[in-house]
């Protein structure tokens, strides 16, 4: 990753897909990340490797304001710092144990994460909100081409924006945005059209 890419917001998840008090897996170009909400809904992101033995923190669980590793229960706070080591309950964990918190923001119902703090908030697309995320086995360029040459498109009769993040050279994370207030039937049609777009894109790749 180039230095300037590190300070770019990357779409990581749909806001409503991360329930309060849960953690989900996602990825930056630098590698896997864990994105989680505290019990009261505050959003956090960090690297997906537990500093203890490297277990994926996205397999862990949230209690209150902390994220716990599923393996040996090391517990991390909102600043990424280790708060508790069950095997040594009397020990105050050294400050150096930290799971690497990442800048995180929400816009258009999309969760954006960056490797390093960007200067500005993620750009808003006025009047649109996230419908659904999908992983395409294709490049962002192939997706744009299949969508008619641009990521501003139309899905099942509804205007749509596609927000994309290349995760690996063969996998792209896609979030489809539709106008705020779109009715359920049109949302369903848009989701079905997104599946069709993936089929077309993947069979062209």
């Amino acid at each position: 990753m180039q230095a300037d890419e590190r300070t770019q917001w990357v779409p990581a998840a749909v806001s409503t897909d991360i329930l309060d008090g849960t953690v989900v897996p996602a990825a930056l170009p630098t590698g896997p990340i864990a994105v989680w909400r505290t019990a009261s809904g505050e959003l956090h992101a960090n690297g997906d490797r537990c500093p203890h033995r490297g277990m994926r923190l996205s397999h862990g669980f949230v209690r209150g304001n902390s994220l716990s590793c599923i393996y040996h229960g090391w517990r991390y706070g909102r600043d990424g710092g280790c708060e508790h080591i069950p095997a040594h309950p009397g020990l105050e964990p050294p400050k150096s144990i930290n799971c690497g918190p990442l800048p995180v923001a929400e816009a258009n119902g999309v969760v954006w994460v960056a490797a390093q703090a960007p200067e500005e908030a993620p750009a808003e697309i006025e009047g649109f909100e996230a419908l659904k995320s999908m992983l395409f086995c294709a490049t962002p360029a192939a997706i744009a081409e299949a969508a008619g040459g641009a990521l501003k498109t139309e899905l099942g009769g509804t205007p749509a924006h596609l927000v994309t993040a290349e995760r690996t050279p063969s996998e792209t994370f896609v979030v489809a945005l539709v106008p705020t207030g779109t009715d359920v039937a049109s949302k369903l049609a848009a989701a079905t059209a997104l599946e069709a777009l993936r089929r077309v894109t993947e069979s062209a790749t």
Partner: peptide, 12 residues
């Protein structure tokens, strides 16, 4: 199972 947000919520 990482790509499937709705499956994740259902399993939970």
């Amino acid at each position: 199972l990482d790509p499937y947000a709705s499956i994740r919520i259902w399993m939970r």
